[in-house]
């Protein structure tokens, strides 16, 4: 017998699968029924076949893009947290640099990328773009977390004459962890987007070409099935990044934070 909890869980997995099946079916029927040529809209079967046939090429590109995204994410995580802590510890640093962090964030990265490509070697420029996009949510969320510590707990640490670093390490950082992790989750997705945008702006060929370049290149060559295949891989990569970070966040918070603790009713 199925408990309601399990039935609900099963539905949450089954329903998206049903929707996917219906969409793919409709897609296939449309392509076949109207005799749409593959250079306009390839059927799902052809996309799958391309995925298999082009696997070595696309796989290598996927690795390139993922590696940029992961590096950008790690740099964004470290940079965002370190800068947020610096802002929190020294108000003058915050006053001096926060406006520029905001400017960096609000300036569209597509517009910045060509400039970076002039001044930096291409791999570095791509990494820089991805980093710019990914780092701000880490900074903003961690700053928010560090600044919203329970004031009575701060009073308690004062009472016991805690040093600045004791307050930071034992109180502010753990208290900011949920917001920090939320920022990191956003940054993971943005790092991939930043990498893709920069690759498209870079648009150069060669061994170091990522998935975004494959998409642009396939577009020029009217190799639409490969465009779909590359796009599919990018989506899968994005979803994988999201789940890894969401899982890590859940593990870190599961004992104590409302967002991660399952309530029994």
């Amino acid at each position: 017998m199925m408990r309601p909890m399990n039935a609900n869980r099963a539905l949450r997995i089954a329903l998206p699968v049903v929707v996917l099946t219906l969409v793919v079916l409709a897609w296939d029927l449309t392509v076949r029924g109207f005799g749409i040529p593959p250079y306009v809209l390839p059927g799902p079967g052809l996309v799958a076949a391309t995925l298999v046939n082009d696997a070595p090429l696309l796989g290598q590109s996927l690795l390139v893009t993922l590696s940029v995204a992961v590096q950008a994410f790690l740099l964004a995580a470290v940079g965002g947290v370190v800068l947020a802590v610096a802002f929190n510890q020294w108000r003058l640093v915050e006053h001096a640099f926060y406006p520029y962090a905001v400017i960096l964030q609000v300036t569209p990265v597509v517009a910045v990328a060509p400039l970076l490509l002039i001044y930096l070697p291409q791999p570095l420029a791509v990494l820089a773009c991805a980093w710019i996009v990914a780092f701000f949510p880490v900074l903003a969320n961690t700053t928010l977390g560090l600044n919203s510590v329970d004031h009575n707990l701060i009073a308690l640490f004062d009472l016991y004459k805690a040093s600045r670093w004791q307050v930071l390490w034992n109180l502010k950082l753990p208290a900011a962890l949920p917001q920090m992790l939320a920022g990191l989750r956003i940054a993971g997705g943005l790092a991939l987007i930043g990498a893709v945008v920069a690759e498209i702006a870079a648009g150069s060929a060669g061994a170091g070409s990522g998935l975004a370049y494959r998409i642009a290149e396939s577009g020029y060559r009217l190799n639409i099935p490969r465009m779909f295949a590359a796009l599919l891989l990018l989506s899968v990569a994005g979803v994988a990044i999201y789940f890894v970070l969401a899982g890590a966040s859940h593990l870190a918070l599961r004992r104590w934070h409302d967002s991660a603790v399952r309530r029994e009713r």
Binding site: D150, L153, A155, L156, L159, L177, W256
Partner: peptide
Amino acid sequence: DIGFVFQEPTLMPWA
């Protein structure tokens, strides 16, 4: 030495 008890328990939820 002083011990202080606030109106709320004021515990660290992560510990």
